[in-house]
Design a protein around this nucleic acid. Structure first.
Length: 262
DNA sequence: TCAAATGTTTGATC
DNA sequence: GGATCAAACATTTG
């Protein structure tokens, strides 16, 4: 579920509620979500105070008075400050004012404690909403297919399958286009498309295409704005020809063969 | 033969 | 070294 706009929405929905709260105790039930020594994790979290909740790429960064708790939602993770624990709840934080729950049926998400910046966060590329155009263009000087590059978190942090496809459509660029062969004008179109779509999606509370909800259980609405993602066979909103779906970088890739050029 | 799903990592291969 | 590909993780859904 979670790409940059969804993670940003989750962070915004829980940050004020969590800041200043103390973790009384915690409980974890998945060896996948919380790899390693769970008893040690519980011990390290006990008594910690939450200083802030922020986002970096698709990671939720919870700064504690000692150490950092990093949460990645994977494909089906939810961080909730409302609701109750259920069958797929794999993390429970008892705070000095309420509960914080981590729910994740597929268990592709991760909850990790670290003293410094976690390695996975350290490897992230720039934030798409903060990078300047010149740096963006310089980073495109690689002979990889643009769709694969947009999904690469070391290239840019936060784009996933939905927003990569939507950004390429908005920029009129074919997903198989080779990155270092894009003209400056087309690179600028892509840069603007990425920023415009991410900003718009955040305003709409993200995309709820299956069951995504923010930290208070509320759905997002950007799925109503999707032009290509999940629209295989439906008419292109620009030219009316059917949206096609192919496999690029192992991911389903939606595009209009008429409106998006290599 | 059940395939595909908003993600990431690892290892093999070209 | 760079890029691609396949598999792995676990579960639900069409």
């Amino acid at each position: 579920m979670p790409e940059l706009p969804e993670v940003e929405t989750v962070v915004r929905s829980v940050a004020a509620h969590l800041a200043g709260r103390r973790i009384i105790s915690s409980h974890f039930t998945s060896r996948f979500v919380t790899p390693g020594n769970r008893a040690k994790l519980v011990q390290r979290l006990a008594g910690r105070r939450i200083e802030s909740v922020k986002r970096r790429g698709k990671f939720i960064i919870i700064a504690l008075d000692r150490g950092t708790l990093t949460v990645h939602l994977g494909m089906t993770g939810k961080l909730l400050v409302e609701g109750e624990a259920g069958e797929h709840t794999h993390g429970v934080f008892n705070l000095d004012g309420g509960l914080l729950l981590y729910h994740d049926p597929r268990q592709f998400g991760r909850i990790e404690f670290s003293d410094g910046v976690p390695p996975r966060v350290a490897r992230l590329g720039p934030e798409p909403l903060e990078i300047g155009f010149e740096e963006f263009r310089a980073r495109l000087k690689r002979k990889a297919r643009i769709k694969a590059l947009l999904l690469n978190q070391a290239f840019l942090a936060g784009l996933g399958n939905i927003y990569a496809d939507e950004s390429l459509f908005a920029a009129g660029i074919h997903p198989l286009a080779v990155a270092d062969r894009l003209s400056a004008a087309r690179a600028k179109k892509l840069y603007d498309a990425i920023r415009g779509i991410l900003t718009h999606a955040i305003q709409m509370g993200g995309s709820s295409i299956s069951d995504y909800v923010n930290g208070r259980g509320e759905r997002g609405w950007f799925q109503m704005e999707h032009r290509v993602y999940g629209r295989e066979g439906e008419p292109c909103t620009n030219c009316g020809r059917p949206i096609r779906k192919i496999l690029v970088a192992q991911r389903g890739t939606h595009f209009c063969a008429h409106c998006q050029k290599k």
